[in-house]
Design a protein around this nucleic acid. Structure first.
Lengths: 152, 152
DNA sequence: TTTGAAAGGAACTAAGG
DNA sequence: CCTTAGTTCCTTTCAAA
């Protein structure tokens, strides 16, 4: 994980569809060298995935919600987590310090679906309570850091 | 935005680096047709970006925080937003219903940096108060919906 | 909008410094 | 860990339906 690796990561955070040839030009290496480095970044888990970022409304997710979860004192955190994993509406899941053990980001099509999701969450064993905030708009999401210029 | 477009979007949400040829195989069209469709999805804003999803710790972001922002009654929301936009630590920004106008997701290297970010946020004109929760771990993030099988 | 053809590039592998 | 070289495959454009 040297400076070139970091540049590659930031370049791919900015545009995951850059070709190896283009990445190679930007960092000043040959394409096979970049291919090798990116392969190692993927294999070591530094790069987890490449995803298209989509306007949620365009694919029928008009409603974005952030949901804080308080756990039962008796519950098993792993079971709660597994239950969340089964709910595809939950796009992101953070384990938090504080009273609320989890913070979830969920996307659904309608307020009615959000209601059903919240009911399901409150019924999940190990969940004591939920607190939901509704996002009126997403200003930006998963913005990369500005890439450090590779050399000089 | 027909069923094929939706399949293309979900396929690219799952793996943004799929080749046009591979996408074409999966949806049963020719590569040029897919090229054309994806180009239109990009141009129309349905696909906003292609991003590598990176293990934050690997690129020096050991600390993830979720920060709620209460605005001054007198402040201009656009100015506040613009100030947030200038802070690269703020990876995501949602405009919320409720007392807190914004919910921010920030990533920084250290708790000390988080402290500095919070001070900066509290000093930003238009910001009345902040409320910060610290994520101990990211269980998952930006998970795609399971893709609908293209045909049958 | 789609397909097929065709040129130009890129990916991937292998061999060598 | 890098480069050069070569083969295969993909991207991209265009004409035509």
């Amino acid at each position: 994980m040297d400076a070139i690796d970091r540049s590659l990561v930031e370049l791919l955070r900015g545009n995951a569809r850059l070709s190896y040839a283009e990445l190679a030009r930007q960092v000043g290496l040959s394409a096979p060298a970049v291919h090798e480095r990116v392969g190692k970044l993927e294999a070591s888990g530094v790069i987890r995935a490449y995803r298209a970022e989509v306007e949620p409304e365009a694919i029928g997710f008009a409603v974005t919600a952030l949901i804080g979860i308080v756990e039962d004192s008796g519950g098993d955190t792993d079971d709660v987590l597994e239950a969340f994993r089964q709910m595809p509406e939950i796009e992101s899941c953070y384990f938090m310090a504080g009273v609320e053990s989890f913070m979830l980001k969920a996307r659904v099509g309608t307020i009615a679906e959000l209601e059903r999701l919240i009911v399901r969450l409150n019924r999940t064993p190990g969940v004591a309570s939920t607190r939901t905030g509704i996002a009126l708009s997403t200003k930006w999401e998963n913005r990369p850091q500005p890439p450090v210029p590779p050399e000089a």
